[in-house]
Amino acid sequence: MTVPRAYFVIGPAGSGKSTVARLLARQTGAAYIDKDTACTRFTEALLELAGTDRSERDLNPYYHSAVMDLEYLTILDLARDNLAVGRPVVLDAPFGRYFSRPGYLAEVAERHSWPRHAEPVVVRVDTDSDTARARVRARGCARDLSKLADWDAFWRKAQDNACRWSSRHSLVFDNRADGVTPDAVARALGGLADDDSRAPGLTAR
Rank of each mutant, 00 (worst) to 15 (best):
A45V: 06
V122A: 06
L83S: 03
S129M: 05
A50N: 10
A38M: 15
G179T: 03
F42R: 13
Y98G: 05
A109N: 03
T74H: 09
Q159H: 13
P88A: 11
D34S: 06
E48C: 11
C163S: 15
W155Y: 15
H64I: 00
T181G: 11
A109W: 01
V172M: 13
K157T: 08
R26Y: 07
W165K: 00
K147Q: 08
W114L: 01
A134I: 05
L189N: 07
G201W: 14
L59E: 13
R97S: 07
P94H: 09
D58Q: 09
D126H: 11
P4G: 11
D81E: 06
R26H: 14
G140Y: 02
L49N: 15
L70A: 09
R143W: 12
D128K: 08
V185R: 02
V67Q: 13
V136L: 12
C39D: 07
L171C: 09
S100A: 05
A134T: 05
A93R: 00
L70E: 08
G190P: 11
P4R: 03
V136D: 04
R101F: 00
A138L: 01
A162K: 14
V185H: 04
N82Y: 03
E48N: 14
V85Y: 05
I33W: 00
S100I: 01
A188V: 00
E44T: 14
R137H: 12
Y62P: 01
Y63S: 01
